[in-house]
Structure formats: structure tokens, C-alpha cells
Simulated scan of single mutants.
Amino acid sequence: MTTRGGGTPRRSAADPVWRGPGGRNRNVDIANNYDPKIDAARAAARAAARPTPEQAAILAAKRRHWDRISRRLRPIVLAEYGELCWLCQGAPGTTIDHVTPLSKGGAVDDLANLRPCCSNCNYRRGDMDADAFRSILRAERPKVRPSRNWFG
């Protein structure tokens, strides 16, 4: 691959795979050998991960249902439990989280199962147990030692 005066990569006969402006292509090994089987396997994996039209319709209906419930219950949840994230207690609760995840049988619209949660904690937690997630949060926080011994 050769470059122009500004350092932009340019395709040449010696370099059969165009690597784009970043100069990288993950489907090329050290000797610049391109393997079409890798691209085919990646395409098959992406196609398998896509939901079928029936699954997509069911998911869309569930999202519309949850949006209606969320708009109705969000002010009630924030008034009942405060505005801070119930997991990290540091950020404002911008989303509503389920104490018992829906995938583990939690109720969708039960106020006892809903808490305010920051978007970071809500997305990172997934369907993990709240106590297990809090232990991960505690492990990530740096332990700060006092700069001097104030009591002795």
C-alpha cells in the first residue's frame, strides 16, 4: 500500500485488499492473505442473530406496552423512592429498573418491583441479581486511604 503526500492510504496492485482510511482489515493476516470463508461465517452469524419478523413484531408490541406503562408509572416511582439510582446511589435515576428482572418472572407494572435507576447501572446490570451487581460496583470503586492518621 502506498500513501499520498498527506498520508492517506491508496490501493495498489501489490496490496489486493483495500484497508480503508484506518489501514486495517481484520480479515487479512500478516501476509495479506484474504479469507472469504471468514466473511461468510461473519455474515451467517449476523443473519442468525437477527430476529425473525414474528419475533420482531412481538418485541415491538412489548416495547409499546412498556412505554405506555413507563410514562404512567415513572412519576409515581420517582415520588415514592426518590430521584437517586437505587444501585449506585450516586447518579440521578433517569430510567426505571425492575428489582426482579422480567426474564426471572418479575412483574412489569408492580410498584414494588420498580425503582429509579441511572441508565449506566440499568444497562450494565441486565438480569443480574442486585446484590451481585452491587458487589461488582464496590469492587470497581477505588479504595481511598486517608492522607494522615487523624485519630491517633
Rank of each mutant, 00 (worst) to 15 (best):
R4L: 05
G6R: 15
T8C: 12
R10Q: 07
R11N: 06
S12C: 07
D15P: 02
V17D: 13
W18T: 04
R19G: 15
P21D: 04
P21N: 05
G22C: 08
G23R: 02
G23E: 08
R24F: 07
R24V: 08
N25D: 15
N27D: 14
I30W: 01
I30E: 03
A31P: 02
A31G: 07
N33H: 11
N33T: 11
P36E: 14
K37F: 08
A40C: 07
R42D: 01
A48E: 05
A49E: 09
A49Q: 14
P53T: 03
E54M: 09
E54V: 15
Q55W: 10
A57K: 03
A60V: 09
H65T: 13
R72H: 09
I76D: 14
L78W: 02
L78K: 07
E80F: 04
G82N: 00
E83T: 07
L84T: 02
W86E: 00
L87R: 13
L87N: 08
C88P: 13
P92C: 10
G93W: 00
T94C: 03
I96K: 02
V99D: 00
T100M: 00
V108F: 10
N113D: 07
L114T: 07
L114S: 08
P116Q: 02
C117A: 12
C118S: 01
N120D: 06
N120V: 05
N122H: 09
N122G: 06
D127T: 11
M128C: 03
M128A: 09
A130E: 01
A130W: 00
L137Q: 14
E140S: 12
P142E: 05
K143A: 08
V144H: 09
V144E: 07
V144Q: 06
S147E: 02
W150N: 05
G152S: 09
